[in-house]
């Protein structure tokens, strides 16, 4: 058996006085889908942003596909990598953001081909052909020449997923991919992610969609106050949570969902 795709070991991080992560450890196997849930401010998003080094860690190591992310070992110390070295590591890790972050001055197609051409040095024709395939896969073949402002939130998020996939990532990170969407647009984005899971993509998904997490995840991680409270298969975590805090959180988010609909 090969090593896990992601190993997070004893990672801590503070923003000044505020501790956001305290000794977080987890592993994610190849082809596995992990959903990270928890109240806002629990450190879920920060943890995700540490995995591709958009945030620096203060302690601990993160290893993706056998590469130490963001640092190089120098004896008993970790030397931070230069931005250009981190860039090479990030190219293999796809990320999808809550606010889509599409490039507004580029069309959907230009958004998708930008990194393959500029970072991977692929030929324009090949990159465009593949981008068309990806946009078709997320159901947007008819929108390739639209600018982001002309697309709905759900369409923008699907373009963002296609943009990340165009780099042929080994791992996909989703940072609350449906939190900024109108309720009726959530489904179309979740369907695309479900489709990726069926394809065997390794994914780490921070989400508030409990039903989706239960449905798509192999493993669910519940975080609170910068630490992992409990993790396990969805049936166990949702069906028979061991920790009191998990139970309280699940009950509360159920109430919220009931009120929301």
């Amino acid at each position: 058996m090969s090593n896990p795709m992601v190993i997070v070991n004893e990672v801590s991080k503070s923003f000044g006085e505020i501790v956001v992560l305290q000794g977080v450890s987890l592993t994610l196997d190849r082809g596995e889908v992990m959903c990270v849930i928890g109240p806002s401010g629990s450190g879920k998003s920060t943890l995700l942003r540490c995995v591709n080094h958009l945030e620096k860690t203060d302690r601990g190591v993160i290893i993706v596909d056998d590469h130490l992310i963001g640092y190089r070992r120098e004896g008993d110390a970790l030397r931070e990598l230069r931005e250009s070295e981190v860039a090479v590591q990030r190219a293999d890790i796809g990320m999808v953001f809550q606010r889509f972050n599409l490039f507004p001055h580029m069309t959907a197609l230009e958004n998708v081909v930008e990194a393959p051409i500029g970072v991977r040095r692929e030929g324009r024709a090949a990159a465009q052909e593949r981008a068309m395939d990806l946009l078709e896969r997320v159901g947007l073949a008819h929108r390739v020449n639209s600018y982001p402002t002309m697309l709905s939130g759900g369409e923008q998020q699907r373009v963002a997923i296609a943009r990340a996939l165009a780099m042929r990532p080994k791992l996909m990170l989703f940072d609350e991919p449906t939190s900024a969407l109108d309720p009726e647009l959530v489904g179309e984005v979740l369907d695309v992610i479900r489709d990726l899971a069926a394809d065997g993509m390794t994914m780490m998904i921070v989400t508030h969609e409990m039903a989706f997490a239960r449905d798509v995840a192999n493993r669910v991680v519940f975080m609170d106050h910068g630490a992992i409270v409990e993790q396990g298969p969805p049936e166990q975590l949702f069906g028979a949570p061991r920790e009191e805090r998990t139970r309280t959180f699940l009950l509360r988010s159920q109430d919220g969902a009931a009120q929301g609909t």
Partner: peptide, 14 residues
Amino acid sequence: KGQDDAARALGMKR
């Protein structure tokens, strides 16, 4: 700021 995040997440250098 999200534009910079997205660019860097795609492996672009500064």
